[in-house]
């Protein structure tokens, strides 16, 4: 398969369940009243991958995750997780999954250790004999040992987030679903999560991580899907996502108005500068770089830097989900 960018392209050929997929949804739909939160989503998460699930706020990422974990029922379509039909096989699949969904949720009046004991006791397959040791190991793995005995209401958001990850790691898992795992973490914590995800992936665990932070996905993931307004608009390996044949021109100039006008004459539409840098999609890659530079100079724009390069994940993301602050409806 050369390209799996558009989800719709892959559907027809993949109707048979694929054992190599940790998560597989076909035509997944979730409707709340009249609102279509998830619309015909076809996710294919390969086993062993670190899969980034990208999308603006409100695009339906968390709703999709809730359906995957059986917290909410799908309105239509099929879901297979770890090769098993969901939600029929929920009881046998869920023990193999560790998850952090929409932020941590804990009893504020209990200590970190007591909270993990409580949630572990809900898992019928978790042995009470090893519980204390497993709780201790999970707290150690997320760097919370020092605060294990403190009540959770005294925890910072970052500490609760770590405790949430520790809960996902209480048992050996085959799949980890982490919804915005670095939310509320300091830069140090963000790095630790990244390292943790890499080490889990090295153990062969599939990690499905949702985020709206592109850098995070770019640093951690092998695969990604982009969701926008309830639909998957792109899916594949990170390289496949970036490699679209599109070429961008980047110009560093203090005279962005002049430069924009000059580019417009060449048929290139540039947006507003970010960090003193203009960025624009080259509609026609045959336009020579020197043509652009001389046009800029002729227009009186001081060119301090110039580059022509392929799309970054951010370019793709913005192209797919739109720019600006509009939260998807």
């Amino acid at each position: 398969m050369t390209s799996t960018i558009a989800a719709s392209e892959t559907v027809e050929s993949m109707t048979a369940p694929d054992a190599a997929l940790a998560i597989e949804t076909r035509g997944l739909v979730k409707r709340f009243g009249t609102q279509l939160a998830v619309n015909d989503v076809n996710l294919s998460v390969p086993r062993g991958s670190v899969f980034g699930f990208l999308g603006p706020n409100g695009s339906g990422k968390t709703t999709t995750i809730r359906v995957l974990l059986g917290l909410a029922a799908a309105t239509g379509g099929s879901v297979r997780v770890l090769g098993e039909e969901m939600p029929d096989r929920l009881a046998s699949v869920l023990p193999r999954i560790g998850a952090l969904v929409e932020g941590p949720g804990f009893y504020p009046f209990l200590s970190g250790t007591a909270n993990l004991h409580r949630l572990d006791s809900a898992d019928r397959f978790a042995s009470p004999a090893t519980r204390t040791a497993r709780v201790k190991a999970a707290l150690e793995r997320v760097g919370l040992s020092h605060a294990a005995g403190k009540k959770v209401h005294a925890y910072s958001l970052g500490m609760k987030q770590r405790l949430g990850i520790a809960n996902a790691l209480l048992m050996p898992r085959e799949l980890l679903v982490l919804d915005e795992p670095t939310n509320g973490l300091d830069p140090q914590g963000t790095r630790e999560v990244r390292t943790l995800v890499r080490s889990l992936a090295a153990d062969g665990i599939t990690v499905f991580v949702s985020s709206h932070l592109l850098d995070e996905i770019e640093l951690m993931c092998t695969h990604a899907a982009v969701m926008s307004v309830g639909r998957i608009v792109a899916q594949g390996t990170l390289d496949e996502l970036r490699r679209t044949g599109e070429v961008y021109v980047r110009i560093i100039t203090p005279d962005d108005d002049l430069a924009r006008a000059a580019l417009a004459e060449l048929g290139i539409a540039a947006g507003y500068p970010v960090g003193g840098r203009l960025s624009a999609l080259l509609p026609d890659p045959s336009i020579a770089p020197e043509t652009i530079v001389s046009a800029l100079v002729a227009a009186g724009a001081r060119v301090r830097g110039f580059d022509i390069e392929g799309a970054t994940l951010e370019d793709r993301f913005v192209a797919l989900t739109g720019e600006g602050f509009d939260v998807a409806q």
């Binding site: 086993r47 004991h117 397959f125 062969g204 390996t237």
Partner: peptide, 30 residues
């Protein structure tokens, strides 16, 4: 999507050491 390299390296984690020992009373006690 090339995932052969990762899927072969995958080690199946052991969900239980012995036969499944359902601890049904655990949740009630908790």
């Amino acid at each position: 999507m090339s995932l052969n390299s990762v899927s072969t390296a995958r080690s199946v984690p052991e969900t239980d050491t012995g036969p499944a020992s359902p601890s049904g009373g655990s949740l009630l006690r908790s």
